[in-house]
Amino acid sequence: MTRKEIWVYIERNNSGVEDVSLEILGKGTELSNISGYILVGLIAGTPEKKLIDLVIEHGADRVALLKNEMLNEYSTDYFVNAISEYIKNDPPEVMLIGATQNGRDLAGRLAGRLKTGLTANAITLSIDREGMLLAGVPAYGGKILAEIGCEYGRPQMSTVRPGTFKMKEVKNKKGEVDEFIPNLSAIRQRVRIVERNVSEVNDLTRSERTIIGGNGTRGDLTLLKELAQLMNAEIGVTRPLADRGVAPRELQVGSTGYSLKSKIALVLGVSGSEHFTSGIRDCEEVIAIDVDEKSEIFNHCDYCMVGDIFEVLPLTIKKMEETR
């Protein structure tokens, strides 16, 4: 590619677009300013014009549209084929994809097909003087950040953890749109969705006040929900509770869940594993209650309360109600 470009995969969903795609555009604008690379939003399917405008308003200099109705719903076979055929002869320098389930599904396979390097779940991104993308990935449960570069192969690929970067609207931004119609008639879709059941969800990454329950709640979130209502807070959980189905996965906080940016987070009965604490690092104020005074969580909070949540919470709820 004569013009060097950073491509951002725009993941569509029922309400339009995944936030993470716009967040990456926000970071991409910054990278583009530093490196001089052109920022391109890659959209697949036949989206409304509104979506294309949104991508440009969030920083894209150009939109590459892979126009085909078969791309309106994600499928590994169609997407990997369409994207790889489109870019393999003239790959961009950088390709960034949100680390959602489907984003990770796509990224791994695409990197395999394009024979290039991929880094996963980045929480930092930079481009060095030689034009190498450095993607920072928390390793070993979040103790260490490994900055990974792609030495060979193009594009230099990385997935990006949702909730990491801020989306930015760029006023009066103009962008061109390039259309391409991929031919997918010969591709067999080998994995098919036979049932899907979804309900409206709250986006935890935007929650201002969050109460997070861990194993210490014994899987009973009744008290947490009562308190949440009184302080107008959202509920989050640790992974074991999400694994057991006590709460849906999108309420999971941590390295394989969501990262919070809450003003206040109340953490109840959580042992403070690094997989968890990476998800509350960016909260302004953290309060923790745990029966075990040696709990690691007390190294990650502003207010440390040794106590039984089943004792402290009912009293707290009562007082909140009285002094409402």
């Binding site: 190498m132 103790k143 007390f298 190294n299 440390c304 106590g307």
Partner: peptide
């Protein structure tokens, strides 16, 4: 295709770690 260019320790949280003592009544 990739190499680890650098390992950086993720800074540990600079939280205040204020201990709240007392009876359950006082704590709440």
């Amino acid at each position: 295709f990739t190499t680890v260019k650098r390992l950086v320790e993720i800074p540990q949280s600079s939280r205040k770690k204020i201990i709240i003592d007392g009876t359950p009544e006082e704590k709440s």
